[in-house]
Every structure is written in structure tokens, then in C-alpha cells.
Design a protein around this nucleic acid. Sequence first.
DNA 1: CTGTTAGCGCGTTCAC
DNA 2: GTGAACGCGCTAACAG
Lengths: 362, 362
Amino acid sequence: MKKLPINISMVAAEAGVGVGTVSRVLNGSEQVSDATRERVLCTMARLDYRPLRSASSLSKGRTGAVGILVSGITRPSVIARLEGVIDVLNDAGLDAVVLNAQNRTQLDHHLTSLTDQRRVDGIIVISIGIADERVARIKELDIPLVLVDNDVPNLPRVVIDDVEGGKIATDHLLSLGHRRIGFIGDNSDIAIGTLSSENRYLGYLKALGVAGIEPDFELVVRGPHSSNAAVALGSVLLELGKDRPSAIFASSDTMAAGVIKALHQHGLDVPGECAVIGFDNIEISSILDLSTVRQPLLESGTKGASMMVALLNGEIFEPRRVELPLEVIPRGSSLGNQRKLSIVPLGEVRGHHGLHILQRGG
Amino acid sequence: MKKLPINISMVAAEAGVGVGTVSRVLNGSEQVSDATRERVLCTMARLDYRPLRSASSLSKGRTGAVGILVSGITRPSVIARLEGVIDVLNDAGLDAVVLNAQNRTQLDHHLTSLTDQRRVDGIIVISIGIADERVARIKELDIPLVLVDNDVPNLPRVVIDDVEGGKIATDHLLSLGHRRIGFIGDNSDIAIGTLSSENRYLGYLKALGVAGIEPDFELVVRGPHSSNAAVALGSVLLELGKDRPSAIFASSDTMAAGVIKALHQHGLDVPGECAVIGFDNIEISSILDLSTVRQPLLESGTKGASMMVALLNGEIFEPRRVELPLEVIPRGSSLGNQRKLSIVPLGEVRGHHGLHILQRGG
DNA sequence: CTGTTAGCGCGTTCAC
DNA sequence: GTGAACGCGCTAACAG
């Protein structure tokens, strides 16, 4: 009958030292002689000792974990951000506790449960609009809070200029000669997301204004944020007959993908009969040959997590608001089917994609 | 100078009861009179008291957290599983600590760090092959372990029959009259993934065998698991000239998407000149009109997490191995461009996709 | 039903 | 440089 749970005092006893010394070794204190340190380390290994995180947490007053609040974890843009956050946190030795909220009720529930039990040292919120009262509550409890993809003043945050993004996307279509440009967005206000889509819409209007084009609100539709919904939304525009747009700006690549499908279903050539541009530059964009606006998704996560790490270390840092750059990525869905001209010799392609480990046969 | 950290003894004092009673109220014990309970709850609210998770963890000997080990968190199939896991864990009041491993080194690092500090009560591993020694180590430490998408004997796990999946995918192509069928897979053995792709390949061979077709190993290629890599891999098959396959089975939809792009680049009609079928049925599959084999991804996560919850509650459950069903989803990439016939009246589409909240104008 | 007490395992202060 | 003692906030076992 072995009493498995080995604790610090057993190690101390075995090594013939005090618990304080073992603790010092554990936390890498300099005030331990090399000889003693070696002996302690050796004993720890021999006894197969491993410190209990919760005990250390209680003592230190820090959990060593960061809560990550996400809505609709399956959205490619959210995942890219999440990956960045997780990687940085893990590298910093912090646990990434992920909470997925499907609706506002769940969101509130998760937030309160997170703060009320002080399970985490800090909270990172990704692509979610948070009520002011919630923010106040968190500040009151003195829990560090970082926002990714949500531009709330006076809070550490990583953002992009969505208005500008919507403008350069529309400008791209305008520069190709399009005058009737449709907009497809999501119901940001209804869902628990941020105002990204609405801001991109504002950029769309701005670009039209600068170009001296009167916006036709018949060309503006919104719906749920999914490819399938976008298929139907796209159809709405395409069934306008003679009045249908010659180009469409979808506020995300996910929805742009649906638009392209709708175009195919209607037997329309892309971009011959209708050009398309999306937003985000996720993986499927290059597969679909979809023009888009690139935003540094992964980096938004790493930046945000870095801020959190700095906050937890009590470091002062500036700026507290980081804005990431945007860039139009022109592809076939707006430029034309140049992809057919762009077939790269296989050798080159292999090199690009690391196909040196290409295998043949079975 | 307010001493914010309110603890259980302050609440007890304020409420005029003992700490034990407060603790009982906290843990929902039945052995408290309604009157007392009410008074305590009221005091807790008044003092804005919130229990410290780490203290409770130390006392109870349970962290209330479950570690989730993932590789390549951006893969759509992984995310769908992850979502299921997180939802169930959160519902059970457990923290989902997500670890993302890019390679075997990181994987080992994460595993040891998880177990060595006993940060979690249990570990769920998603779509990753684990070394026997690691498994032994975890069992030794008596930490519950559940595998999702990895069929290791004697361990609680949620799996599918990949061999059968590869077979029915290939059978589908055979039933359409194809005789020269290519296979595109990933380097399962080299990466840290499971043997899914290889098993699907075995199913492919099996189907060919049953059909009396001699496999042509020139039609079998493998490479990294990404759409871009699959474009190049697809090109390898397509550039066989007269000998190119009339159909291709890609071991995942992600790779199948690349194959379709390769076909477009080569100016080949899908499925007229080459049919395609993938595996997984992720979101982009329906957008690409890609035939595929559906596996219940979300459910694999919820099932796995449920098993973990049961394990943590000390419940005995059977079976310890859950196999989820597979199903061929035939679409345009193999059946032909029936999508042009399948344009659904807008009204119906709206109904299907919840477009009742469709908005117009801006 | 309720109050009291003894740990849970580790960090940190204080003397030596 | 090192050991001993105390405290972190809570739970559980016991006594009443």
C-alpha cells in the first residue's frame, strides 16, 4: 500500500534539507548552493516527485491560467486568432482555458463563472462585443482584460480598421470599372459579434461616395454569418435581373464562398458576369481563387496574448491599442480567370509546398 | 485601504455561522436549513464574496479542469471535434484547457507538463497518435485518458472505421463506372497524426480488390495535409496524360478541395473528365459541391467528453470503445453537375437557413 | 442541523 | 545559504 502522493516535505526529508530549500529549488531561486540544488533535484527525480499546481496557486495567489472567450469557435477567422493566443500563452507557461459561447446568455454565464470563481488570472475576449457593465465588473475585480478584434476605448486591444478595409475592398472593385456593387453582410447587431461587418459596410458606402456613386440599397443584404446563408443572400441580388450587381463585396470570405456558389448555381461566370471580393483571407480563399482583404489573423492572437502576458507580469507597455495592417489580395474572382494562365511547373510547386517528402506508390 | 480578498471566514463571521456551514452552502449540501442557507447566501452577496477555485482544488484534490491535446488546431475536422468537447465540458462545469502541439517535441512537452504538474483531472487527446510509453505514464499517474479519433486498444475512445470509410468512398466511384481511381493521402506516419489516412488507403485497396481491379501504384500519392499541397499532388496524377485517373479519392475534404483546384487549373471538367470524392464532410464540402464520406465530427467530441465526465465521476460505463457511423454523401463532384438542376426556390432556401431575419437596405 | 478543528501542498518570512 | 514556522482559502471529519 504505497501512499503515492509525494509532497514537498517528503522530498525535503529524503534529501535531508528543509522544505524551504526544496521550494527554492522549485522556483529557481539563486540563493541555493549548487551542491544542495543538485542533491534536491536528484531526490525529486528519484522519488518521481511533481509539485501540485493548485497548492502553488493558492500560495502564490495566481492560477497560472488565462480564460479565452470565443463565440462560434468554428469560424475560420476566430480559430486563426485562437491559435495565436494559445501558442503564446503556452509558451509563457500559462494554461489556455477556452470558453465557447453560442449566445448572449451563455456569454454572460461564462463571464460570471469565470470571474466569480477567480479561476483565471486574466481574460482574453475574441471577436465578441461585451456589454459595458461586464467590462466595469471585470475592472472592478482587477482582472486583466484584453480584447481581440473589438475596438473598445480604454482597454488593451488588437484591432483592424474595418471601415478602411471595407473601403479598399470596394475601391478594388471600382478600379476594375464596376459601378453597381452589391454588399452582403452579417447581422452583427443581432448576434453577439462585433461591429466588423457594419463597419466594413460603412467603408463600402464611403468608397461609393468618393467615387460619386449613389448607393442603391436594393443591393445591400444581410443575414446569418454562414456560407449557406450567403448562398441565399447572393441569390437575392442575382435575381434582380437586369438590375443585378456586376460585382459583390461580401464582408467575410466565408460568406463570399457562398456567393460564389450562388453565382455558379445561377450559371453566371465569375468574374465575367459578376466579380466577387471577400474579407479575411482564410485558407479556402486561395482554393476558391477568391479576391479578398487580408488581415493578420494569427498575429492578432499572438499580439493580444503577448499583451496579456505583459499585463500579468505587471509590465507597462504602449500602445494599449494595436492596429494591424490590411491589404487587398487580388485573385481570379475579380481579376478574371488568370489562374488558367498561372499553372506553375510542377517542380516549382513542389518546392513551394514542401513536397520534397512527396511519396509515390503504396 | 480596503482589504478586498474576502474569504469564507469573513462571510461566516458576518452571517454569524461557522465556516463549515458556509462551505456546505457553497457546495449545495442538503444538510442546511433553508433559513440559514438564505442568510448565508444573502451575506455572500452583500460582501460580494467569491470562492477561490485554487483553494477548493487543493482541498478537494481535484482541479476541475480537463486538458485537451490537439495537433494542428486549424484543421476543420479537429475544430469540429474540439467544439463538441468544449461544450460538454463547460456544461459539466469543467475548464477546458487546450494545448496545441505542432510537432512531436511540443506534444511530449505538453504531455509531461500537464501530467507533471497535475494541472488537470483528465486528458482528452484529439486526432493524435500517442506513444505507448506516454500512455503507460499517464495510466501510472492514474489520470483518466480518453482518445478521440484514435483506436488504441484498452483505452476509452471514440473512433470510426477508417478502412470501411475508404472502402465505401471507393465503392461509390466504382459504382459510377470508374476503373482507374487515384488516391491522395497525407503522410500520417511522418506527422504526429493518427493512421486515418493510411487506413482509408487500405479500404481503397480493399474495394479495388473486391471489384477485381489490380491497383496501379502510379495513381497513389501522399504529401502534407493541406489544400495547397493537394493541388500539387493532384497535378502529379493529372499529368500522367492518357494514364491519368478518371476519378480521385482524397483522404480528406481539405485535400479534395486542392484536387478540385488542380483539376480547374488543368482545365478538366469535374466530374466529366475526373470525378472526386473526399472525406469528413466539413463546411466547405457543400460549397464546393464535393462528394464525401460524412463522419460525425462534433459528436465524436461530445461523446469523448461525456466519457471523460463519466470517468471523473467514477461511473462505470460501457462500451469503452464507441464507433460512429459513416455515410457517403454524393454530390456534384462525382455525380455530375446536377447542382444546376437543384436550384431551390428562394423561399425554401430562406426557410432552411433561417433567413427570416434577412434584412434589406442599409 | 451546525460549529470547531485539522489538514490539503506549497511559498515566504524570519532567524540562525 | 539554510531550516522552521506560519499562512493561503477551503473541505471534510468529528463532536455536539
